[in-house]
C-alpha cells in the first residue's frame, strides 16, 4: 500500500506540469502521428474534465481530419484539436436582453456552485451600465441565504424583494415582478436555492417558479442561467441535462475558474445539450465576472493563459 501511495505521489508531481509543456512535449517527442500521440492527447483532455465520451469524439474528428488532409506533422495535431474545441464551444453568446423591460434572469444550479455570488457580480455589472436592478431572494431554504443576497444588494445598489425564510419562492418571484413593473426596473435577477438535480420535488418547484414568471410576464424569463462549478466532474453533465429539462436553461455561468480546475465538462455539455457558456467567474469580488470566450477558454485549458 505504501509503495502505491508513494508511486502515486511521484506521478502526481508530473501531472502538475502545465498542459502546454505537456502538449508541446509530446508533440516534440513524437516524430509521427501515432496511437501513442492520441493517447497522450486523450490524457490532457481527461485531466481537464472533458470526459471520456466527448474526448473520444473530439479525437475521432481529429483523426478524420488527419486522414483527409493527409497531415503528417505532429505539431499540426494540436492546432487542429484547439480549432475543433473552439468550434464546438461556438461564438460568444451574450446574455439575452428583452426589448421591453424588465429583462428577467433566472439563476439555477446545485448547492454551493456560486449562484448568489454570480448574481452579485451580474448586478454589479448592470449597475455599472446604469441599469436599474432588482434582486429576488427566492432562496428561502438555506440558512442565511436572504442575508447574503441583501449584502450584495447593498454593495451594488440594487433593489431587493424578500420574504421570510421558508416562504414560497414562487410568491417572492411574483412580488418581485410586480415591483419591477411598478418601479420601472430594467432587470430582475432571481436567486434560487441550490438543489441537487436528482431531487424530483425540488426540480418541480423550479418549474413552478418558471411558470409563474412566464405567466406574469409573457416571454420571461429571458435568460435561465445554470451555474456550474468548474471543479465539477462528469456529474455536471447530468446536472445540465436535468436542469435543462426542468427550466430550459439558456446559458451556463462557469464559476471558480480562478482555481486549478479547467471546467472542461462544458465541452461535453455544449456537445450533448447545446447549452452555450455565457459567463465565467474568476474570483469572489464584484468584478470577477467575464463574458465567455471559446478561444480564451481553450487556451486556459491547455495552460497557456490564466484567467485574470
Amino acid at each position: 500500500m505504501v509503495s502505491f501511495f508513494s508511486k502515486l505521489k511521484e506521478s502526481l508531481v508530473k501531472t502538475r506540469q502545465g498542459f502546454i509543456e505537456k502538449v508541446s512535449q509530446l508533440v516534440a517527442v513524437h516524430s509521427k502521428i501515432d496511437e501513442e500521440l492520441f493517447e497522450e492527447l486523450e490524457e490532457v483532455l481527461i485531466q481537464a474534465d472533458v470526459g471520456i465520451a466527448a474526448t473520444q469524439r473530439l479525437l475521432e474528428e481529429i483523426r478524420k481530419s488527419v486522414r483527409q488532409k493527409k497531415i503528417s506533422e505532429p505539431g499540426e495535431v494540436k492546432t487542429l484539436l484547439r480549432e475543433k474545441m473552439v468550434e464546438l464551444l461556438g461564438d460568444p453568446v451574450p446574455v439575452r436582453w428583452s426589448d421591453t423591460p424588465p429583462t428577467v434572469i433566472l439563476v439555477v444550479g446545485v448547492n454551493g456552485v456560486g449562484k448568489t455570488t454570480t448574481i452579485g457580480k451580474l448586478a454589479h455589472r448592470f449597475r455599472q451600465e446604469g441599469k436599474k436592478v432588482l434582486l429576488a431572494a427566492a432562496d428561502t431554504f438555506r440558512a442565511g441565504a436572504i442575508e447574503q443576497l441583501e449584502i450584495w444588494s447593498a454593495r451594488t445598489g440594487s433593489d431587493i424583494v424578500k420574504h421570510q425564510p421558508g416562504s414560497d419562492p414562487a410568491a417572492i418571484v411574483f412580488d418581485a415582478l410586480q415591483a419591477a413593473r411598478r418601479r420601472g426596473t430594467d432587470v430582475v435577477i432571481i436567486d434560487t436555492a441550490g438543489r441537487l438535480h436528482t431531487k424530483v420535488n425540488l426540480m418541480e418547484e423550479l418549474r413552478k417558479i418558471k411558470r409563474v414568471v412566464g405567466r406574469e410576464l409573457p416571454g420571461a424569463p429571458h435568460e435561465v442561467l445554470l451555474v456550474v462549478d468548474a471543479t465539477t466532474g462528469q456529474n455536471a453533465l447530468r446536472q445540465a441535462e436535468l436542469f435543462k429539462d426542468a427550466t430550459d436553461v439558456t446559458g451556463i455561468a462557469l464559476t471558480k475558474l480562478d482555481g486549478t480546475a479547467k471546467g472542461g465538462i462544458v465541452l461535453a455539455i455544449k456537445e450533448e445539450l447545446g447549452i452555450p457558456v455565457k459567463l465565467v467567474g474568476i474570483g469572489e469580488k464584484s468584478e470577477d465576472l467575464k463574458d465567455f470566450n471559446g478561444s480564451e477558454f481553450v487556451a486556459a485549458l491547455f495552460g497557456e493563459d490564466r484567467w485574470e
Binding site: 502526481l12 501531472t15 502538475r16 481527461i46 485531466q47 481537464a48 474534465d49 446545485v110 454551493g112 462549478d229 471543479t231 465539477t232 466532474g233 462528469q234 456529474n235 455536471a236 482555481g259 486549478t260 480546475a261 479547467k262 465538462i265
Partner: peptide, 12 residues
C-alpha cells in the same frame, strides 16, 4: 470535499 468534484480533487 464535494463528491461531485472532478479531476482537480487531487490537486486540492
Amino acid at each position: 470535499v464535494d463528491a461531485m468534484t472532478g479531476q482537480d480533487a487531487v490537486n486540492v
